[in-house]
Design a protein around this nucleic acid. Sequence first.
DNA 1: GGCATCTATGCACACGTGTGCATAGATGGA
DNA 2: TCCATCTATGCACACGTGTGCATAGATGCC
Lengths: 339, 339
Amino acid sequence: MPVTIKDIARAAGVSHTTVSRALKGNPAISAKTTKRIQELARQMGYTPSAVAQSLLSRQTWTIGMVITTIADPFVVQVVEGVEQVAQAADYSVFLATSHNNPDQEMAVVETLHRRRVDAIIVTSSRVGSLYSSQLDQIQIPIVLINNNQEGSAYLYSVAADDVQGAQLAVQHLITLGHHRIGYLGATNRVRSNRRRFTGYQDALKQAGIAPNPALVTYPNVDDDIERGQAGLDLFLTAGATAIFCYNDMISIGLLMACRRHGIAVPEQLSVVGFDDIEPGRYIMPALTTIAQPRLALGKRAMEMTLNLLNQQDVQDQVLPCELVVRQSTVRLNNPKSKI
Amino acid sequence: MPVTIKDIARAAGVSHTTVSRALKGNPAISAKTTKRIQELARQMGYTPSAVAQSLLSRQTWTIGMVITTIADPFVVQVVEGVEQVAQAADYSVFLATSHNNPDQEMAVVETLHRRRVDAIIVTSSRVGSLYSSQLDQIQIPIVLINNNQEGSAYLYSVAADDVQGAQLAVQHLITLGHHRIGYLGATNRVRSNRRRFTGYQDALKQAGIAPNPALVTYPNVDDDIERGQAGLDLFLTAGATAIFCYNDMISIGLLMACRRHGIAVPEQLSVVGFDDIEPGRYIMPALTTIAQPRLALGKRAMEMTLNLLNQQDVQDQVLPCELVVRQSTVRLNNPKSKI
DNA sequence: GGCATCTATGCACACGTGTGCATAGATGGA
DNA sequence: TCCATCTATGCACACGTGTGCATAGATGCC
C-alpha cells in the first residue's frame, strides 16, 4: 500500500489538508510546518497518486497513441517523436495497436476513452472516416498523422507533403537527364497514391515532358515486394530509363526483379523510392528515396496536441519531405558519372 | 464532460447505486430495471471511468514498459509481444524511454509509480542493479528482459539464452568445416558478452578445437559499426576463416570492411552475427545470424507479469535462440557449395 | 482592554465508482 | 389480519487529493 497524505498527516499530527498544502508549497502554511512535512514525505517515500489527482482535476496528463503495428518502421519513429515531446511535457503515452483491424481499432479507442486520456493521436488509419460518430461522443482532441480528414470538430491533422515529395523525386531524375520516367503505384492506398502521382505529373509538366500513360502501372497484386517485381516487364518494353515507385518496399521488389533479369541498377535503370525505410540503406545498390519527416511528424503532432489542451488555436500542418540521394540513381548516358 | 452513472441515475429516476449494480448485471436488481438502465447507458454513450475504478480498486490494469529507445529494432519486437498479450488481457501499456540515461530512467520509473502502474517491464537496462532502493519502495512486480538481476523480492527476469545461441553459431561454423574461428566482442555490454563468449568457447571445446587467444579481439572503439571494421586486420593476420561477432551491427561493420579490403564473403571469410536485426536481411551478402526470440521475450514477460498480478508463483525464464542461415557463411574449402 | 485584522489550520465536500447495511414494499402463510 | 420472509432499492461511506469556507489563536491599534 503506497503512502498517502493521510499517513503523513497522522505521522505529523496535522490534517491531511495541511499536508496537501505543504507539499504544494502553499503560502498559507507556515514555513516551519511546510519544511517539516516535506521532509517527512521524503522520508516516508511518498509519491502522489496520479489516479486520485486525475479524478479531481478531470485530466490524466495521458495521451493515447493508436497505431496499426509497432512492427512498421514508419510508425516507430513517429512514436519516438510523440514520446519525446510528451515526456518533456510530463505527459505519458498509452500505446494501442489495431493491426489494421477496424473492430480492434474501435475497441482500443473505447479503451483509451475509458482510461480518460486527454487526447488521441492516430497514425495511418481509417479511423477518421469510419467512426466519426464514436469519436464525436468522446469529445477530446484527436490528431491524425498522414490522414487529413474532415468532419468532426475535434479532428486535426499533421501530414507529410506527398505531392512535394514526389515532385522532388521526379525533379531529381529530370536533373539527371531522364525523360522516360515511369511511375509504379499502389492501388490499396488511394489517397496518398493519388497525391504522389500528382507530384509525379506536376514535375513532368514543369519540365515540359509530355505524360506517357504507357509509363504508369498499377500491378494487380497485394504484396508491395511482388508489386515491384510485377512492374518491371512493362517498363522495359515501354523504354523507361528511370522509375519512381510509390514506396520503398515496391522499389526493393523492383531492384530484386532487376537483379534476377540481369538489369543493372542504376546503369540501365534509375530507381527512386519513397519513405526512406531502413532496408533501403543496406540493399545493393543503396536506394535513392524520399524521406518523410517521421520524427518531426510525431513531434509536431504532440506539440499540436499540447496546444489544443492549452486551449490554443491550431492549424493543420503539412511538413515537407526530403530527397535522399544514394546509389540507385545516376545521370543518363553519361559514363563518367559512374564512379 | 463524459456521462457518469449519476447522470444515468437522474435520467432513470433511480439512485446511482442501482445504476452501478444494473450495469454490472447484479442479480439484486430486477431484470426489468437492469435492462432499462443498460439501454439508457448505451443511448447516453456511457463509458465507465477507469480512473474512478482504479482509485477504489487500487488497480489500474496498466503496466509500465521502460525501454532505452524505441528506435532500437530489438526493443520494437519486444514491445510488440508485450502489447499483444497485454491487450488481450485488457491491460494497457505506458511507454517510457530512458535513452540509456540513468537520471531519466529514475525519472520515468518515478512517473510510472505516480501513475500507479500495476507492474513494470524493463528491457536492456541497468535499472536493476542501480536503483534497487528506489524499486524496493515501489513494491510492485518488476520483470527484467535480458537482464537477470538478484536482490529485490519484486524482481523477476526473462532472458534469451546467450550461451546456447553462441554455441549454435559456432557449431554451425564447425559443421561447415571451419576450425580457425574468431570472436569479435564488445566491451560495453559485459555480462551478455561474457555469456556469448562462453558459448563460443563451449562449442570449440565440444568439437575438440583448442582455444586460440589470437583469434579473440575487443576493438577499443565505441560504435558497433566501427568495432566491426576495426577487427578485420587482426583476424586476417591470425588466419581466421570464420568469425562470430557479438552482434549484427558489428558483423555489418565487418562486412563493410571486407568489401573495402576486397575480401570476399563468404568465399574467403564466413561471418555470423547475433540478434537478427532487419538490415542483416538486406545487406549483401545477407547475414547468417542468431535470432533472439524477441516477440516471445515480450510475450513471456507480459504473461509472467499477469501471473504475478494473479498471485501465482513464477520462475525466471530463459528462452532459446535460433540459427538463421543466410549467405554470409559457407563450407570451408569446398568450391561446389558456392552456388 | 476591547475590537479589528491577520495567520495558520481544520472541516466538509467534491471527483466517479463500488459495496455493506438498512429499509420500504411486496408476498405468503396461518 | 398480522407477522415473518423475501425482493428491490437507497443511504452512507470508502478510495486519495484538492479547495472554499470557517475558525481558533495571535497580533496590532487606539
